[in-house]
Every structure is written in C-alpha cells, then in structure tokens.
Design a binder for these strands. Structure first.
Lengths: 212, 212
DNA sequence: CTGTCAAGAACGATCATTCGTTTTTATGCT
DNA sequence: AGCATAAAAACGAATGATCGTTCTTGACAG
C-alpha cells in the first residue's frame, strides 16, 4: 500500500479538477482536450484516468463545482440578520460573484457559462446543474419571504415568482460582464434600485445605508 | 453559368443555416459535426463548403442569427406607443421569446445559450454576439428613458444601469426555462411586478394580473 | 462545348482511452 | 533499525475511432 489512502488521493483529485477548470475557463468544455488537462495538472494520462473514469465524468464534476461555487456565494451574501432590499441582495451577490471571479486563478464565471450550455445538451450535466440551480432558487425564496414580511416587496405576490425573477438577474449579470465588460455589482445594484423605485423600498435602504 | 445567381444561392445558404441551427439546438456547437449538418441539410459535404468556408464561419453565422432573433423579439415587444411598466416590458419580451422557441422547428433559445458559451471562448463569435447584445441594451435604454419620463422608474437613476438590470433578466429567464422548466413569461412578469412593488408601478401591475 | 455546381469517397490530423512498464511506498520480516 | 516485498499509483507511447476539409468525378444549364 503506497502513500496515503484518503487524504492524498483527494488532493490529487482536486489538483486535476483545478487544472481542468483552468483549461475549461480558457477553452470551454469541448476544445479542452484530455492532453491539455494532463499537461496542466502536471500528471500523466494514466493518472488522470485513475481519478476520473472518463472526460464526461470530469466535465460533470467541473460543472457541479462551478455552479456550486456561485451558489455558495449566494448563501453567504444573503445570510444576514437585517433584511436587505432586493437591490441590496442583488448587489451583494453580484459583488461576491465578482470576487470569486478575481480571487482564484481561474474565472469561475467562464466555467459556469460553459456549464449552462452543457446542461442544455447533456443529461448527466443537466441533472447536476438543475439540482444546484434549484437550491439557489430556494435561497432566493427564503429571502423573498423575509422581504415580504418586512414589506420590502409585494406581500400579496407569489414568492416563487419573485424568486424566479431575482435569480434570473445573475446569469444576465455574468454574461454582460463577460461579453460587454461594463457591468459591475454596483451598477447592477443601482439599476435594480432604480427599477424597484418606490416608497416601500426606501425605509429599509435608509437603515443599511448603501454607499455610492 | 448554370442555375440562378443570387436568389437560389441565398436560399441554399438559408437551407444549410436552418439545418445547422437544428443540429446545434440539439447537440451544441462542438458535438454537431459537419456530417450532421450535411445530412440534415440534404446536401453534400462539398456543397456545404461551397457556402461556408469552414465550420467556424458557419458557427459565427448561427450565433449571429440566434442572438439576432432574440433581439428582434425585443424590438417588436417594446415598440408600443403607451409606455409600459418594467414588469410589462419584461413579460412581453419573455412572451415573445417563448413564442420564438415554440414557433420554429428549432428552439432558438438553445442555440442562444450555445452562442453565449462560444462568445466567451472564441474571438470571432465574441465580436458578433457583443454587437448584438449591445444593440439589445440600446433598446432597453430607450424604453427606460421613456419610463423615467413617465415616472414608472426612478427619474434620478442612471438609465444605463437600469438598462443593464432589465436586460440581465432575460438570460436568466431562458436558462431557468430550459434547465428547470417551470418559468413562464407570466410568472416572470408577475415576479418582477412583485419586486418593483410600489405606488409608481401598481397601476400598470394591475393590468397583468398574474394567476397562480 | 464550357464553366459552374453538387456529390461523396479519401485523407490527414486530432482526440479519448488503454495497457504494459516503471516508480514509489507501506508493511512484514530479520 | 534496515532490508525485501508486494501492491498501488503514475507514466506515456500506442490505438482505434472520429472529424474537418479537400479533391476528383459527374451532371447540367447556357
């Protein structure tokens, strides 16, 4: 029995996964060859296939990780005690997405876009991504319910529909950011604030005191 | 000089393009092989390469067409005399996207998702898609300015930022529709209406009267 | 006839995957 | 403690299949 059993094995798997995500962020899923992944990971073809049975399995793992990271961002940015306005929630989540895109060596949002496209096409990836997106919208739903109780959004509206609308903003944020490059969390937050213009949103906005 | 010169030539090109879009909607850009396109178009490999110099050029043409169709939808749904509320605009555009997805044999939204992913990766497609998305946001901007004048959105807010926010909704709509499948133009419109809750938006929101 | 268009078999390149070999290391034995 | 051993892990060249593209051949209009 060489080396360790669980710890180093997980580390190697992570090493391959990170290298593969870097490739995918640059070239997408299908233009990324296993040779690229092998080269980027610093291992060999045989080693990579020791941790992932196929390229498909590797792609699923990447998609899961990428969408999951964006989801984690969501849970973190929203889990506050004071109930923020919709515009504030959107700005915080968008800011966390910006941070995620910059912090790591790889731009996670590029991988996420590739994962969306793959989810439309491949059943395996679809299952993985659908589950993560469903969890994301659950988070939205919780926030919306709090905001309804606080009178920040229409208390008579269907919270599920509002969660759909809130969640819908982020793919568009990511895409405009990647394709046009002139959108920031601040501009998106301000835009949402402008669209949700009305007295109901103002009292809460006063408390938290959003800057800029 | 056999056959016709311009008309039939354009028709052949269109025939190939439609066949290719059908393939892309089902399999994405990279899993679609030229052999598939050849088979679906009913022509031969040599003929296809007589109209498109390479697969890359075909992909660019498809991306241009797909994003352009969604953009046309936008211009049509928004070009009304009476100024609609943000929620109404969103619902109308989303409804037109739904119609586009169902009317043709091919689901154009699937092709659009593939085009986004390709725009992130390929410079040629990026240029094409960026131009179309820029035009789309110009349309948003015009609508926002009208809404500002009508007091439907914050008159003091930056219209560019609001246009960013409004446009951001549609990729998320398309993705939730394709991946989770439980979002409709009506639910999205109602959700936006609920989030933009306030006296300024209410008179218009009454009209739409979302069920549930 | 002649020049254009379509056909489709053939080609070279590329990619995912495998498998025989080599290296590494935990463990048993002295 | 030090060495031998077995098994797991890594290696990387070979493989079989697939894909984009080309090029020769045949058909048809002017």
């Amino acid at each position: 029995m060489p080396r360790v059993t669980a710890e180093h094995r997980a580390a190697r798997r992570e090493q391959i996964l990170v290298a593969a995500m870097d490739c995918v962020a640059r070239e997408g899923f299908h233009k990324t060859t296993m040779a690229h992944v092998v080269s980027a990971s610093g291992l060999s073809a045989g080693a990579v296939y020791g941790y992932f049975r196929s390229k498909e399995e590797l792609i699923s793992a990447i998609a899961d990780r990428a969408v999951g990271m964006v989801g984690g961002v969501f849970a973190r940015a929203a889990g506050q005690e004071a109930v923020p306005s919709p515009a504030e929630v959107v700005e915080r989540v968008a800011a966390s997405i910006e941070a995620q895109a910059a912090d790591h060596g790889v731009d996670i949002t590029r991988v996420a876009v590739a994962a969306w496209a793959e989810a439309v096409r491949d059943e395996q990836v679809h299952t993985v991504v659908a589950a993560k997106v469903g969890q994301l919208r659950e988070r939205c739903l919780e926030i919306i319910r709090l905001q309804q109780r606080a009178g920040l959004v229409d208390p008579g509206g269907d919270p599920h529909q509002m969660a759909q609308a809130m969640l819908a903003l982020f793919p568009g944020f990511i895409l405009q950011r990647l394709i046009l490059g002139d959108v920031t969390s601040a501009s998106l937050g301000a835009g949402v604030a402008g669209l949700t213009y009305g007295p109901a949103a103002t009292p809460a906005a006063d408390h938290t005191g959003g800057s800029s």
